[in-house]
Amino acid sequence: MKILSKTRLENVFNKLNETAEVFVPMQRGEQSGFYPWQTFAAGSDKLWLEALNVYLPPKNVVFPQTERMYNIKQEGQDVKIDETYEDSKSRVIFGARACDVKGITCMDDVFLTRGYEDSFYKARRQATTIIANACYAPGIACFCSAMGVKYVDPEGADIIIRDIGDGYVWETITEKGEMLTARIADLLEEREVTLPEPKPFQQDVNYDGVAEKLKGMFEHPLWDKLSQTCQNCGICTYVCPSCYCFDIQVKMYGNEGYRFRCWDSCMYEEYTREAGGGNPRPASKERFRNRFLHKLEFFKERYGHPLCTGCGRCTVVCPAGISIVKIIDAVKEADTDA
């Protein structure tokens, strides 16, 4: 087996950093997330691959919160579009968990399949190599397995690493992975090790049949009850590894400006506001219902799997203590005969 010793991690980052922007999990001040290795500050940042997971998922690497699309210049009657910002700079996501890799593959479904390709997403995605960090000990909020995520064998990764204490087993999966491995091959060693035994999940979640049952539950009274304490902030959508909604807007300064896209959240009033001022999702109930129907029903109908990857972040951060796990339970238990 190929092994990367933990003492050589930094060498690997430095090596990869020569040709790519390397995103690694760090604790940065009070936050944790995937930040570029070149911004690592030894005093204040902590490299944190042992973390169960970091707070902010790596989705921004392929789908940044704000992304400039092109510049606009108005010249008389003409509009000149001068530059597109498709970004195909090489990037590496190092140490993403299976749930977060799945989040990115969910975005692949949306932005790259079904006859529509988002060129901005595609440029970034094709230039991104994903090194997944297999999980062996799910945390209290984890339920990825219930959502069809293989936590020990992350799907969608180019390389999988497995923590064996003093190092990582390095398993190359794809051609893109081969290319990356070749660059750091001399930093890997060969030895046989025993892999850890995966620990069980700490909570039971059963998603079976939920998508099908939800089809008939749009008007079910349970949405009133479940949504009543939701405050309609966007934390859950912005810490979610798979939420991909965005808005496209323009900033103009006189005759010049640019068009950009930025994350949007279905929790916001503005999200569904119509040109005439009407809003089909005026209050928290409608927005809340849409979020969970999208996660658990609509997405599965279209792409064959849910848009929730069971990372548990939203259940940890929600100020009102709302949990998608409880919603799945409530749907399962709901009486739909009435």
């Binding site: 604790q27 009070e30 944790s32 902590k46 944190w48 973390a51 169960l52 997971n53 970091v54 707070y55 945390g139 209290i140 909020a141 548990g312 972040r313 940890v316 951060v317 100020p319 203590g321």
Partner: peptide
């Protein structure tokens, strides 16, 4: 603060709060 406890026990943050 339940949010602090939640963060600390979830594994998403160092137990630094």
């Amino acid at each position: 603060d339940p949010l602090v406890a939640m963060k600390n026990y979830s594994g998403f943050n160092n137990k630094n709060s």
